[in-house]
Design a binder for these strands. Structure first.
Lengths: 198, 198
DNA sequence: ACTAGGATGTGTACGGCGTTCACATGAGAA
DNA sequence: TTCTCATGTGAACGCCGTACACATCCTAGT
């Protein structure tokens, strides 16, 4: 039945679908995010979103792109210019905290197969990668930035996933902070005490 | 229609469902794994699996438990007793290789919300955790094993996810091996060259 | 040997989903 | 004013997860 309280043309359904998808993800997790639920939330029919997104994956990809941008912003706000290992540990805490505050978004960003040809998503990921490279350059000014920024990103990324998945204790912000600090410092202290190669 | 070529009682439907789920996961990824598809593959009606698994999550959890056990076995086979940083890098390569060879299984194991009260899954995860602790004890005999094994697991786990997600180049085994070795060594070499705390 | 109970199947049903397609409506350009 | 295109709707299809009533067979007890 045509609703008399809304005009036939939504006007900006593409953005409304994206917003609805974000809300559903935050409220109900990945399982609650369906195109039909998005359409209901946006107040349109079940098939209207198909005029703006090719399929469900396309909408999810757009959500992930926003997530990357927010993560980059979150990290930059937490520490604009990290310069010491302690700063690096705090950045790691911010990264893990983002994952724990937005678990479904984080999974959408990093845990599902991703279309590498999706330009928006690739561009948004680059912002995070760029930030990590700057961190490495600031904290380890004399190191090979490429390999080390891969390693640093892997550490914080792994910490995020292990907390998210319950493998590491995420019960309180203090527990998270302590664990992340301990891990980062243990790793940086490990180099000199590694058993030498035979 | 009752099939005349199979007895009414399957005999070991629980194991058959698990096997079918494994096969479907390997063939079609997470999207191809449904209880109905499992039932078809096992040759029973759509609702028969509910006699052995409470719901889809229960079956997926059992699949993940087998995955953890296989990962632990894969790592132990690759390096029973790692003792140098080079050995650690090889273990990391084995871990990432497992993720790339079994992407859907790896996601089921680590990327979906996990029931922490699931004893089978917890026990299986412990095997991986134990192996990592042994690695750390072998490679860094004088370090604080707890914090460092969390950090080491985070590094290899993060590398696995970043490769799986396409953030790192996973196009050839050589590219993977080179990248993982470079990251692990860069990290171990980074400690001494970190900017000192102000 | 028979019976009964329990384990384990089947079939039906419901409500949800993703997606396609034909048609409806309205906005904007010519 | 008309026409085209963008953007909606409604119907339909096939799939899914899950619940429930009933069917079948296996095993234990008498």
């Amino acid at each position: 039945m045509t609703r008399t309280d809304a005009p036939y043309h939504h006007g900006d359904l593409r953005a409304a679908c994206l917003r609805a998808a974000r809300e559903l993800l935050e409220e109900d997790g990945g399982a609650g995010l369906s195109l039909r639920a998005v359409a209901r939330r946006a107040g349109v029919s079940a098939t209207a979103p198909y005029r703006h997104y090719a399929d469900r994956d396309a909408l999810v990809s757009a959500v992930a792109a926003e997530g990357y941008a927010e993560l980059a912003g979150h990290l930059a706000a937490a520490h604009p210019s990290p310069r010491t290992p302690e700063d690096l540990a705090r950045v790691a805490v911010a990264y893990v905290r983002f994952a724990l505050e937005h678990p479904a978004m984080f999974r959408v960003m990093f845990a599902e197969p991703c279309d590498p040809t999706d330009e928006e998503r690739v561009a948004a990921t680059a912002a995070v990668r760029e930030y990590v490279r700057d961190v490495v350059h600031g904290v380890f000014p004399r190191s090979d930035a490429e390999a080390l920024s891969v390693a640093v990103w892997a550490v914080v990324h792994g910490l995020a996933f292990l907390h998210l998945d319950g493998k590491l204790d995420a019960s309180t912000p203090e527990a998270v902070s302590r664990q992340v600090h301990a891990a980062v410092h243990a790793l940086l202290d490990a180099g000199p005490v590694a058993r030498p190669a035979d």
